[in-house]
Nucleic acid binder design. Sequence first.
DNA 1: AAGCATATTGACACCGGTGTCAATGTGTCG
DNA 2: CGACACATTGACACCGGTGTCAATATGCTT
Lengths: 342, 342
Amino acid sequence: MSAVTINDVAREAGVSKKTVSRVINNEANVSAQTRDKVMAVIQATGFKRNPLGMALAKNRSLFIALLADNPSPSYLQKLQKGVLQYCSESNMGLFLYDCSYRSPGLVDEIEGFIDNTLADGLILVPPLSDKKELLDMLNRRKVAYVRIGAPDATLGDSVGFDNQQAAYELTRYLLRLKHKDIGFVLGHPDQGSSQRCEAGFRQAYAEAGLEFPEKLLVQGYYTFQSGVDAAAVLLNKVPRPTAILASNDEMAVGVLYSAHSRGLKVPDDISVVGIDDIALSTKVWPNLTTMRQPITAIGYRAAYKLIRKLQGLPDEGPTSPDADLLTCELIVRDSAREPGRH
Amino acid sequence: MSAVTINDVAREAGVSKKTVSRVINNEANVSAQTRDKVMAVIQATGFKRNPLGMALAKNRSLFIALLADNPSPSYLQKLQKGVLQYCSESNMGLFLYDCSYRSPGLVDEIEGFIDNTLADGLILVPPLSDKKELLDMLNRRKVAYVRIGAPDATLGDSVGFDNQQAAYELTRYLLRLKHKDIGFVLGHPDQGSSQRCEAGFRQAYAEAGLEFPEKLLVQGYYTFQSGVDAAAVLLNKVPRPTAILASNDEMAVGVLYSAHSRGLKVPDDISVVGIDDIALSTKVWPNLTTMRQPITAIGYRAAYKLIRKLQGLPDEGPTSPDADLLTCELIVRDSAREPGRH
DNA sequence: AAGCATATTGACACCGGTGTCAATGTGTCG
DNA sequence: CGACACATTGACACCGGTGTCAATATGCTT
C-alpha cells in the first residue's frame, strides 16, 4: 500500500495538510520556499495522493466507463484502444461494462452500474448511443456522456464519422468499376448509421442517373452471421449481383465467407466491399477493400471530449462544426475489381 | 447523484449511522424491529451506499483490473467477457489497462496505474503473467493477482489450460489423418505456453514412433503476421509439408492467409490447424479445425478466484489439484483432412 | 509610520462510509 | 432480587483528501 499519506507529508514538512494539498494541486498563493520544502518531502517519501480520498472529497471519481454491447469485437477493440490511450494520458481509469442492448432491464442495469462505480462519465457505443431511454436516465442523473455515432444536437455530444459519405463514395467506386447490379447489406434497422448508409447508396445511384436496385437491398444487423445470411439471399438472385457492399466490415467478412463456401471466387466471380477497416479485414483472404473509419481516433477523441468536460476545461480540439465527424478514406485492397474479367 | 446518504437514512429512521451500516452489511446483533425500520427507509429513499466512501473506510476499492498487452484481440475479447461476467455478478468494477510487454518502464508504469486506481487485485494475461519483475513488484506491494496461464507454484495463483495436452492431441489427430510432414509454428519464445506446445508435438511423434521433423519447426510470436511469415517459410520447403499446426489460432489464420495468397487450397492442398478456438476461427474460410480452449470460462474462473480471495472467502470451486487447468477439446471443422486426396 | 490591499497559511468541518468501545437494555441463573 | 452474560445501540474517531474562512505576514501607498 502506498502507506504515506498527506498527513505524513505535512508533518514531515512542518506545514498543514491544506498547504500540501495546495502544492500537489498546483494552486496559486504558495510561497516558493514552502512549495520547494513540500516538494522535497514528496520526492523523498514517494507520496502519491490517494485517488479514493480525493474522489470522496471532490465527489468526482476520476473514472470513466466504456459501455458497449458487442456488435463487432474487432471494432470495439480498436475503439477501446483509442479511449484507453487518452485515459492513460490523463490519468483516468477506464471501467468496462458489457451490456445487452436488447435486455429489458438495460436502463436499470446501467443505473446500478453507475451507483456501483460512481463513474464520472460514460462513453456510449452504438447501438447504446441511440437509445433514448438510456440518454434520458443519464440526463436525469446528470451523468456526463459522449456518444459514439453521428452528431445529433438533441442527443448530446458525440464523435463519429460520416457513414453516408462513406457509403456514397464506396458505391461510386463500384459504379466506376462498372458494376451495375450491386447488392447492399443494410445495418441494424434500429441504428441511425444504417439509414445513413442507405442514403449514401441511393445518392450515388441518383447522381449517376441510374435506377436504384431495390431488389438487391437486404437487411443485416452488423454481425458476421447476418452478413452470411444476407449473402445467401443475394447470391441466389438471378442474375447474381456482380458486387456486394456491406454496411460494415464484420458483415462484409460474412459475405466473403458465404461466397467462398459456395465456391465463388472473390473478386473474380464477385466483388465484396465493406465499411470500417477493422483488424479482421486484413486477416481474411482476400483482404477487404473498404472505407476506413478512424476508429481508434474516434475513441481517443471521445475520451478527450468527455474528460475535458469533466475537468471543466474547454475542448481545445479543432473548432469547426464538423470536427467531431471524422472523415473516411477509401482503402483499395483485393476484394473488388471490374466485373466479368473472369 | 445518488444524493441520499447513510446520514439521511439514519436521521429518517431515527437511528445512528452505525446501525444503518450494520443493516446494509448484514451484521449480526441488530434487532429485527430495527432492521425492518431501517430497511423500510432504505427502500423508500432508494439509498445506495457510496462505493468511494466505503472504499476509503475499508481501504478496499472494489475494483479489479485486467492487465493485458495485446497478442490476439480475439482471445482477449473472450477472456474479458468471462472476467466481466463474474465482476458483474459480484458487483466489482473492472478496470482495463493496456500495456506493452516490451516497454522498459513496464513495471513502473503498472505501479503507477495501481497508485492511480487503487485496484484491489489484478488479472494478468500472458505474456505479462510470466514476467518475473512484475510479479515481484506486486508481491512487494501486496497486490493480489491471478495469472492466466499454466500453474507454477512459485509464481502464485493461476488459471489456464493444458497447452501441452492440446498440442499433443492435435498432433495425434493429424498423424491419424496420415499426415507425416507437419509444419509447426511455435509461439512466442518468452512464453512458457510455447515450450509446452512444442513438448506436445514431440510427445505425439515419439509415441507414434516417428522421427520428429526438426526442419519443419518455425518460430512464431502468436500474432497474425508471424503466422503469415512462418507459413511463407514452410510453404517454400521441398517437399512441402502436407499440414501446418500453429500454436494458436491467430497464427493459424495467418497461415491460412499465406496459403490462399499463393493459390493453395485448404484443405485440399494443405491442412491448417490451430489452438484456442477464437471468434476469428469461424469467420475465415474454411473454418478452422482447432483445439478449443475454454477462454471465457478461464476468465470467469480467474475473476472468481481473485475476488473470492479479496473477499477473504474460500475458493468453493472444484477442489481437485487440476481444477485450474481447464481441459481442451478437439473441434473438427473444415481446414484439415487426409493429405493427397486432391 | 499608519493604513490598507494582498499574499500566505492553518484550523476546522466535511465527503460517506466503517471500526472501536462504552453505555444501555434484556434475559438467565442462583 | 442481585449478579452476570449477552444482545443492542450510539458516540466518536478515522480513512485521505478538499473547501471555507479567518488569522497572520508582507508589500505598497501616502
